[in-house]
Write a protein that binds this DNA or RNA. Structure first.
Length: 414
DNA sequence: TCTGGGGTCCTAGGACCC
DNA sequence: TCTGGGGTCCTAGGACCC
């Protein structure tokens, strides 16, 4: 017997960051708004209002380019805490419709609505109900795509934008996809588009005409997945997971791009310390221990290298992370090379720290306690209030505007 | 145009073991 | 002493997504 047909919803918030900013500042409504930073900053657009998009502004575009295309746009810094707060509100509404909810990112989610007709009525009624409830509970617009797979739901929600609902009736998947650009398939980016174009494949319908074996020869495993996607299947990779199948984090990282490139070792190592602290903190928050620590280095000319080292035992300590990352930096830095970006990445998560000698254990325990205390201080007084001594070397810490002297948190407590 | 920050997944080569 | 194949781990890089 074939598996029962699934009903998947993909809920995608419309211009999410911009819409949230509008709730905090209604004067932004209807204007050309760019979220992500100021017009002269290094950085890219996180989100653009529909008004700004009319001028060609889109996400991932350099802010400076956006400013040229749309000089009258209002540039707004992003507020992650606000978006998380509203993301949580959306999640609460979604869970009232189905127990199988999976946030795919901060502003989109999949719902498995299979077999909920008795509860919510016909599919389209349920979708309208959800659409309405999200609007009334969060004041935000969303679009909903409905299909028999994640892929169909995702593609149809994109076509439903803004503030629409689109249902692809079971059995019509290939027909729906055929006229669409291959770029509309999630996972097909610039590079794949170019390779496909060289074979004369431009639309999903072109793709569907080729044999699976032909696509596999040209693109390997990915080609096989593509063949399935052209038919509307969740072929291969993450898309194959059941909705709500909890996927634990596989890596944690932080990176920083300087406003001006630097070759100042003290400054660089101080940044690495700060990034190590941020990574360590999140490991402890999530109760994770990482075995592999990776450094990312980007130079002025944008050439980027990564260097990793796997430890004999997993860690969640700032000092151990920093030690590794600093060693990797000293070994691999092109002397005098102007650094644009630094990154610290932790992966290969394992249970605890395993067996080790008792003396070491005592030292580690004291570190754990000190770090837990530091975490609590940061919660109370802000990220800049506490730092390990090494982080202070060079007397320079960025983003400490609240604490320009770079002093520990006493001041805040006074 | 001058290119963020947080992730996931895939490939490919070399080391090492059986 | 010449030679094989498979499996797994590690590392580096790249495509892609929001």
């Amino acid at each position: 017997m074939p598996p029962a047909t699934k009903t998947i919803f993909h809920v995608d918030m419309d211009a999410f960051f911009v819409s949230v900013e509008e709730l905090f500042d209604p004067a932004l409504k209807g204007k050309a708004v760019v979220v992500g930073g100021q017009r002269t900053e290094r950085g890219v657009v996180s989100a653009a209002s529909y008004e700004a998009r009319k001028f060609g502004v889109h996400s991932a575009m350099p802010l400076r380019t956006a400013a040229k295309l749309c000089p009258h746009a209002i540039f707004v810094d992003g507020h992650r805490d606000r978006y998380l707060e509203y993301s949580e509100k959306v999640y609460q509404v979604l869970t009232s419709f189905s127990p199988l909810v999976e946030m795919a990112s901060i502003d989109e989610a999949y719902l498995d609505m299979t077999g909920t007709e008795r509860l919510h009525g016909p599919i389209l009624c349920a979708a309208h109900g959800l659409h309405h409830k999200i609007k009334s509970e969060t004041q935000l617009n969303c679009s909903i795509g409905i299909g028999t797979s994640r892929l169909i739901a995702k593609v149809s929600s994109a076509k439903a934008k803004p503030h629409g609902i689109l249902w692809v009736i079971p059995g019509r998947e290939a027909k729906f996809l055929a006229p669409l650009d291959v770029r509309d398939i999630p996972g097909v980016g610039k590079v794949t588009e170019q390779s496909l174009s060289a074979l004369g494949i431009h639309r999903v319908g072109d793709l569907a005409r080729f044999e699976d074996s032909f696509l596999e020869e040209h693109f390997g495993k990915w080609g096989l997945a593509l063949a399935g996607k052209a038919r509307g299947e969740d072929a291969g990779g993450w898309f194959d997971n059941a909705v709500g199948e909890n996927t634990e984090a596989k890596s944690i990282s932080h990176e920083h791009t300087y406003n001006e490139d630097t070759a100042d070792v003290a400054k660089i190592e101080s940044t690495l310390m700060r990034l190590s602290e941020m990574v360590g903190r999140r490991l402890r928050e999530h109760g994770l221990h990482a075995r592999t620590i990776q450094l990312k280095l980007r130079y002025k000319d944008f050439t980027t290298t990564t260097r990793a080292h796997s430890l004999p035992a997993p860690t969640q300590l700032d000092t151990e992370i920093f030690e590794q990352v600093r060693a990797l930096f000293r070994k691999n830095w092109r002397k005098g090379g102007q650094v644009r970006l630094l990154g610290v990445h932790a992966s290969s998560f394992e249970a605890g720290a395993g067996q080790r000698d008792l003396l070491e254990d005592g030292r580690r325990q004291r570190w754990q306690q000190a770090l837990a205390a530091a975490d609590r201080l940061r919660d109370k007084f802000g990220e800049a209030s506490v730092s390990l001594a090494t982080g202070m070397k060079g007397g320079f810490r960025e983003k400490t505007h609240e604490n320009p002297a770079g002093l520990p948190g006493k001041k805040e407590r006074a």
